[in-house]
Amino acid sequence: MSRFKEKKSGTPAISTASLPDIIFMLLFFFMVTTVMREVDLKVKVVLPEAKEVAKLEDKALVDYLYIGPPMDKQLGTEPMLQLNDQFAKLEEIDPWVKANTERRDEVLRGKITRSLKVDKDTYMKFITDVKQELRKSNALKINYSTARGR
């Protein structure tokens, strides 16, 4: 009789021994896919939307120029250019391009893309000036970074 009763007692607790394994799997997935933000943005960039976009394939061969109004309100609302981690003037584009080119392997130097991350309310005058500087330093492959939309 007593044996009969024992068998009837409710379902056994689910083993949680494999829980850490599952969590670890998720953890590794995120660790592998994570790209940490490389620069601190000092300008506010709201990208415009476009539909006909292409993906930039090799992230190691892309350099970013950020253009937009500065986050720090004391610096005004005029658009500013940010290269690497700091504000830069137009004349600083050329040395920046050269430094970034020399960093790369000779074979890959022709494949570097300069991605312009520009706030959508910026006037074209500023962007045209930046483009002219890029042309002067022979950085011709550019990308207008956009958000995928509509």
Binding site: I23, A50, N143, S145
Partner: peptide, 25 residues
């Protein structure tokens, strides 16, 4: 593991840069 997982969840940016490619003359 959860703690680590949450850390990476928060710092992950999945975005790949997309845009309109152009060649300057």
């Amino acid at each position: 593991a959860f703690l680590l997982l949450i850390f990476f969840l928060v710092t992950t940016t999945m975005d790949t840069d997309v845009g309109i490619l152009r060649l300057l003359p």
